[in-house]
């Protein structure tokens, strides 16, 4: 549990962080809440030569009403998302999912931007924001760009962010009263989901995304298409794994994951339809 040697710089603004990462290039990693990176470093699975600590950039921790969407600063802690009256009112699915990240200690330290940028398909928030059709704001040396959640996840722990870019804001469309369901299936409360489902449904639309059903979070478009063409929840849920490429691991074979995805999508949609 002793990480390899590294250097450390603390950035006081997004601009400074981006300038530092430009300076150190591939050797550098952003450190936000540290709940993904530090364990990897302790196991020496990650050995960045430079840590750029962005955790104290105060002006990246906020939750604002952006009109059609809720804007969440990338360094907002999970606990703040979970407890925010605004998020609970406008994007209750996200507030609920934030309450399932890790355990209470993790939720007090870990940040929404850190979780999304880490791009772990087993995490709850990438799939949840994907289901909700969120847009991520990335800041780089040439300024800001917007990346749709659907375009963000490129592979295992791999995102559309360039090495010199930093995630600064998450824009989540308001749910406007759409009903929702969230299912997290695991063996211990604090674990990553073996399979998870975030789903919402309004009169004429729906969004369903899967946790840990492939190398990226999976948008289950076949389910939404089936619902749109009038299929029952049970029939639509049968298509849960159509877009997924689930892996085998110690907790579940791919076959069992596919089965779980169908059951859990059905349960989530039943809640979103009730």
């Amino acid at each position: 549990m002793i990480p390899a040697a590294f250097d450390y710089k603390r950035a006081s603004s997004a601009a400074e962080a981006i300038s530092l990462v430009g300076q150190y290039g591939d050797e550098a990693k952003f450190l936000a809440g540290g709940h993904s990176l530090i364990p990897l470093m302790k196991l020496r699975l990650a050995q960045p030569a430079m840590l750029i600590d962005i955790g104290r950039i105060k002006d990246l921790s906020y939750i604002k009403d952006g009109g059609d969407f809720i804007a969440i600063g990338a360094l907002t802690r999970h606990m703040d998302v979970e407890k925010s009256a605004l998020v609970i009112k406008e994007v209750p699915l996200l507030a609920h999912a934030a309450g399932y990240v890790g355990d209470a200690q993790v939720r007090h330290r870990g940040t929404i931007g850190g979780s999304l940028a880490h791009a772990d398909s087993a995490s709850d928030l990438p799939a949840t924001t994907l289901a909700l059709g969120a847009t991520y704001v990335a800041q780089g040396p040439k300024g800001e760009r917007l990346i749709a959640a659907a375009d963000f996840y490129k592979g295992f722990l791999e995102s559309a962010l360039n090495p010199d870019e930093m995630l600064t804001e998450i824009r989540v469309p308001k749910m406007n009263g759409a009903k929702w369901g969230f299912e997290k299936f695991n063996r211990r409360a604090q674990d990553w989901a073996i399979v998870g489902v975030a789903a919402w449904r309004s009169k004429d639309a729906s969004g369903v995304a899967l946790v840990n059903m492939g190398s990226t979070p999976i948008l289950a478009t076949s389910v939404s298409d089936a619902l749109k063409s009038g299929a029952s929840v049970a029939d639509a849920a049968e298509k849960a794994a159509a877009e997924a490429e689930p892996q085998d691991d110690l907790n579940a074979s791919s076959e069992y994951r596919v089965h779980l995805a169908k059951v859990l999508v059905r349960r989530a949609l039943e809640k979103a339809t009730a």
Binding site: L43, D103, R187, R188, A189, Q190, D191, L250
Partner: peptide, 27 residues
């Protein structure tokens, strides 16, 4: 919950508390 899982080459697959499932109070 718990099992020390080995592969056929004798590698222990459950070396951290993420893989070796010691239940917590909530479980």
């Amino acid at each position: 919950f718990e099992e020390a899982v080995y592969d056929t080459d004798g590698n222990l697959k459950t070396t951290t508390l993420a893989e070796y499932l010691v239940p917590a109070a909530s479980d």
